[in-house]
Design a protein around this nucleic acid. Structure first.
Lengths: 231, 231
DNA sequence: CTATATATGTCGTTA
DNA sequence: TAACGACGTATATAG
């Protein structure tokens, strides 16, 4: 079978292999799933990634993470792709009952994605212009460690009070407030100073629930978004 | 150009279109990105999804969500795929300087994925055998609403005290504890009863930090995993 | 390896 | 539509 040869030689030669056809899929590992017959696109990458894409959705209906091992074989005359990995033990089986297409490509890709508008960009914006938070704010550290984890930005306000910033690149919800709250609690406990630590959530906006939570916990909010790519 | 025709007729006819070749990609929307020349697989789905897959990783290096609109055109003799959506406004541009392959398929897929080992399965396991939590535990409601959101499982212990369960299908971290804490706080405030609400995190295991957080907040932990698919 | 938090997260469900 | 939380999340980074 030509497709089987393609899968074998393709994975062997570190090619990107694509298959399209009618197949069933079973998965067992962190969870377990079965998928009845249907037409899907299967992609096998040289890094061990396997993707099964149906006709809808951004996400693959089934997959195997990078580092997996792909193998092709025939069972009752049908092409079967088996992708496995250990730690955690996971196995993906794709059984084709009809194959419309099979191809292999040499994917040389020297360039990396350049992305802007991330939380890191928001942080850099604040470090460059601390007054965006408030007059007199002075950043002292990023990723400052606490017993509750690393704080996005740590600094002092105009009165010398300790300030913790938690940054979100988009509208923030209750989880962001809880996160900030954990850091403030931890620092309050560790610093055993007179003044309590101020906690400020920095995001373009917050949800109602998050806003209430901030108030309950005595935390603050500053509206700020990552810079446009043009800035 | 044959590939252009394929893209146009394929998207028109609700086919799944795949392209492989050397391309550059730019994206602007919730964030912004550029990607220099390299060999990638582009997938256009009939639901408006666009995927750009490089040779590595489970995730597409660039994409456009379902509901987007794809268009193909020629610019200086090169095939350009443009995928846009509104709300939020986002635009993906893929410009091929070399095309190795183009194909279109009719993806009929009547079957849905059947998945087990989820949080819902863990919840059902508890509802069927409440003593897995502790002797005398009695579930009263799932998705019980509070001012902080819906609680996974709400019930009473042997002494008639209110109990909130927060379920996680896998090892739980600090965020899960914060979530549980929010629900317990909300119920304590709403119920204005004498006895405080008990909060129990139910997961296969917890991280050290999560364990400490539970102790600080007076919350509890019960080790329990979703059932095997065989169970 | 694990732990932690981000993500153009996506996706489903519900108000 | 927005909000909220789950996801086989994946991914990067620090320890």
């Amino acid at each position: 079978m030509r497709a089987l040869e393609l899968v074998r030689s393709g994975t062997e030669a570190d090619l990107l292999v694509t298959l399209f056809g009618r197949c069933r899929v079973t998965y067992e590992g962190r969870a377990a799933s079965t998928l009845g017959p249907g037409d899907r696109l299967v992609v096998l990458k040289p890094d061990g990634t396997a993707l099964v894409h149906a006709n809808e959705g951004h996400q693959p209906v089934n997959w195997q993470p990078p580092g997996s091992t792909h193998a092709g074989r025939l069972a009752d005359g049908e092409l079967v792709i088996e992708s496995t990995r250990e730690s955690p033990a996971e196995r993906l089986l794709v059984r084709f009952e009809a194959l419309g297409h099979a191809a292999a490509f040499d994917p040389t890709d020297p360039n990396e994605l350049a992305l802007s508008g991330t939380e890191a960009d928001l942080r850099d914006r604040i470090l460059k212009s601390p007054s965006l938070i408030e007059d007199g704010f002075e950043p002292r550290a990023t990723e400052r460690q606490t017993s509750a984890g690393a704080v996005d930005v740590y600094g002092e306000d105009a009165d010398g009070r300790a300030v913790v910033l938690e940054l979100k690149r988009r509208r923030a919800g209750p989880d962001a407030v809880s996160q900030l709250n954990r850091y403030v609690d931890a620092l309050d406990r560790e610093r055993h100073a007179d003044a309590t630590v101020r906690g400020i959530l920095v995001a373009p906006s917050v949800t109602d629930r998050a806003h209430r939570l901030l108030a309950e916990r005595g935390l603050e909010f500053v509206s700020l978004a990552p810079p446009d790519s043009s800035e």
